[in-house]
Design a protein around this nucleic acid. Structure first.
Lengths: 337, 337
DNA sequence: CCAATTTGCGGGAATGTTCCCACGAATGGA
DNA sequence: TCCATTCGTGGGAACATTCCCGCAAATTGG
C-alpha cells in the first residue's frame, strides 16, 4: 500500500525545478528549455505520472466529458447511435457519461441531475415518450451547457437537432406499397407526443394522397410503443370489415410483432398482408421473412450529433440555434412486402 | 452570461458564517445549530447551489464513478447487463462511464486509459475475443482500483467474477436435444480464447458422453464470432457425408444465422435440423421459428457484478479474491427444436 | 559596451471543498 | 464560584494543477 499519486511536485523536487516549470513542460508550453522539457518528460514516464484531471477541471472549469441521455437500450438503435457519438467524442478527447431513462420521465429528470453533478461540458439528448415538460432540459440552457437533440427531439427548444427525414421515409415506404399493388394500407403509428410519429403519419398520408387513395382513419392507429399492445391493434385491424392488405409499422420491433400476430391468424406475409417497418434494426434482416424497412444511418446520426455538440462547446458555430441536420433514409426492400 | 457557479463561500458571506460551518451544515454534520443549518439549507436551495464534485473528489480521492468496459453493443446482451449494473450503481450514488471496445484489443487498452484518466473508483470488465494479454487490466490491481469481471472473464487474475454456468447450460441444451431424439448434434462454438466457449464445449461433450453418443470432432467447429462466417461453417456441416440433425450454437445471433442458412438450402427447422442458441436475446422469441435457447439472467449479472464491485470499493468484503458468482441458466424450449 | 529585449524559470494566488485544530461562550457539577 | 466540559463556530492547511507576474541571466542591436 503506497497510494501517493505522483504529482508534478514530486517531479519538480526530483529535478530541482518549480512546479510551474514542470507544468509548462508537460502541457507543451514553448517557454521551457528543450533539455528541461526532455528531462521532465522522461521522469514523468519513469514515475508513471498521470495528470490529475480533477484538479485541472477544477481550474479550467472544463471536464472534457459529454453526457448522453437516451430513452432505452432495448432495440439496437440507441446503442448504435452511442457508438457513433463515442467515436467522434473520444477522437476529440472527450469521455462520455451515458444514462438511459427507461422511457420514464422521472428517470430522465434524475439523469439530468447526474449530468449536472458530473459537470458535463455538453449533453446529447433523446427524450422519452412520456416527456412533455422540458424544464429539466432547459436548465442546461440556463447554465450555458450546450445541448443537442437527436432522434426524439424537443421542438420548443431552440437548440441543434439531428433527425432523419421521417416524413420522406414514411412517404417512400407507403408509396412503394401502393406501387406494388397494395390497396388498403394501415399505419400502426407511435404516440402523438413524439414528433417522429407525427411526421411519419404525415408522410403516410401524403403518399396516399399522391395516388388518390382515400385516407381511412380506421386504418391509422397510434399507440404507446408498448410492444405487448401490438397484438390488440393488429387483431383489431384484421377484424375490420374491410381489412388492410398492408401494414406500415412505426418501427421494426412493432413490425416484427405485427408479423407474428398476422401469422398466428393463419395469414401469410407478404402474400396476404405486406408489412414494412422503420429503422432497419440489426435483426430485421435475420428474421423470417426478412423485413422490408426504412433504414436510417443510425451511427451517422450519433456521429453528427456529437460533432455538432463539440463544435458548440468549442464555440465554432455561430448560429447554432437554427441548425437542424436532416439525414436521409433509404428503403430496404426485403421479403415481407 | 453570468457564469459564477455559486459556492459555499457565497452562502457563507450572505449569512455571515464561515465556509466551514456552511460545509458542515450541507454535509449534515451534527455540531451545527439546527437554525443555522436550516438557514444554510434554505439559502442553498434558493441560490440553486450545486456542490462541486470535482473539488470534493480532489480532496477525498473518490470520484463516485465506476467504469464499465464491454466488448460490443451489437446484441442486446451487454446493453441489458449495463442497465442492471447502472441500477445498483446509481442507487449507491455512483455514476457510470461506459466504453465499448468493438471486440478489439487495442480499443480495450485505450479504454482502460480512459478509465484511469477518469479516476474511476472501480471497473466492471468483459474482455474482447482478441484479448490474450492482460497487462492493461493488471494496472488497476497495481493501483488498488477494484475490478470485477463478468461474462467474459480473465482466469489468470485473482479478482471477483460473475458468470453463468456455461457448462451446465450447454449440457442441458444438448441433453434436451438428445432426449428429444436427435442423433447427430453439431456444436458451432466460439473461439478457444474465450473461457465461455471452452465451458460450453465441455458441457456439450459431457451431455454426449452421458448418453453414450460418440463425440465426432467433425461436428465441433470453433469460430471467431464473425457472423458472416456462419454461412461457411453451416454449409460445411450440411455437406458432410453424415450431416447433423441438430446444431447447438454458441449464441443467439449465430443460431439465427444458422437457421437462415439451413432454410436457404431448402431444409426445414426443426423438422430436418433442430437449432438451439444461447443467451435468449431480446429478438429470439420474435423470429420464425422462435428460437430454443439457454436463457441467462443478464440484467441480474449486471446487478451482481456492480454490487460486488461496490462492496469491494467500500471494503465490505474480506476475501474477495476468491469470489466467483455463478448464476443459473434456464433452457427455454421454443419451436426451433 | 550599454540599453533593450528575450529566454527560462520561480513564487504565489486561485479553483471549491473538507477536515483538523483552536477558541470563546455557555453549561454543568462540586 | 470556579474549573471542566460541551457546543457552535472560525481559521487555515490541504488536494493537484494552471496561470499571471516578476526576476535574473542571456542575447541582441546600435
Amino acid at each position: 500500500m503506497k497510494r501517493h499519486q505522483v504529482t508534478i511536485i514530486d517531479i519538480a523536487k526530483e529535478l530541482n525545478l518549480s512546479k510551474s516549470t514542470v507544468s509548462r513542460a508537460l502541457t507543451g508550453h514553448k517557454s521551457v528549455k528543450p533539455e528541461t522539457r526532455q528531462a521532465v518528460l522522461e521522469l514523468a514516464e519513469k514515475l508513471d505520472y498521470q495528470r490529475n484531471m480533477l484538479a485541472i477541471s477544477l481550474i479550467t472549469k472544463k471536464t472534457n466529458t459529454i453526457g448522453i441521455i437516451v430513452p432505452e437500450f432495448k432495440s439496437s438503435y440507441f446503442p448504435t447511435a452511442i457508438i457513433g457519438a463515442q467515436e467522434v467524442a473520444s477522437k476529440a478527447g472527450y469521455t462520455t457519461v451515458i444514462c438511459q431513462s427507461d422511457e420514464r420521465y422521472e428517470t430522465e429528470v434524475a439523469n439530468t441531475r447526474v449530468m449536472l453533478a458530473n459537470q458535463v461540458d455538453g449533453v446529447l439528448v433523446s427524450i422519452t415518450k412520456e416527456t412533455l415538460n422540458y424544464d429539466h432540459l432547459k436548465i442546461f440552457q440556463r447554465k450555458g451547457i450546450p445541448i443537442v437533440f437527436f432522434n426524439r427531439v424537443c421542438d420548443e427548444m431552440e437548440v441543434p437537432k439531428v433527425i432523419v427525414d421521417d416524413y420522406d421515409g414514411a412517404y417512400r415506404a407507403v408509396n412503394y406499397l401502393i406501387e406494388s399493388g397494395r390497396k388498403r394500407i394501415a399505419h400502426l403509428a407511435g404516440p402523438f407526443s413524439l414528433k417522429i410519429s407525427e411526421k411519419r403519419i404525415n408522410g403516410y398520408k401524403a403518399a396516399l394522397r399522391k395516388h388518390n387513395v382515400p385516407y381511412d382513419e380506421e386504418l391509422l392507429i397510434s399507440y404507446d410503443l408498448n410492444i405487448e399492445k401490438v397484438k390488440i391493434y393488429v387483431t383489431h385491424l384484421l377484424n375490420l370489415d374491410n381489412p388492410p392488405d398492408a401494414i406500415f409499422a412505426v418501427n421494426d420491433p412493432t413490425a416484427i410483432e405485427t408479423i407474428q400476430v398476422i401469422r398466428k391468424r393463419g395469414l401469410r406475409v407478404p402474400e396476404d398482408i405486406a408489412v414494412v417497418g422503420f429503422s432497419n434494426d440489426f435483426v430485421s434482416g435475420l428474421i423470417d421473412p426478412p423485413l422490408t424497412t426504412v433504414s436510417q444511418p443510425v451511427r451517422e446520426i450519433g456521429r453528427t450529433a456529437a460533432q455538432l455538440l463539440i463544435d458548440q462547446i468549442n464555440r465554432e458555430v455561430a448560429d447554432w440555434k437554427t441548425i437542424i441536420k436532416v439525414l436521409k433514409t433509404e428503403l430496404v426492400v426485403r421479403k415481407s412486402s
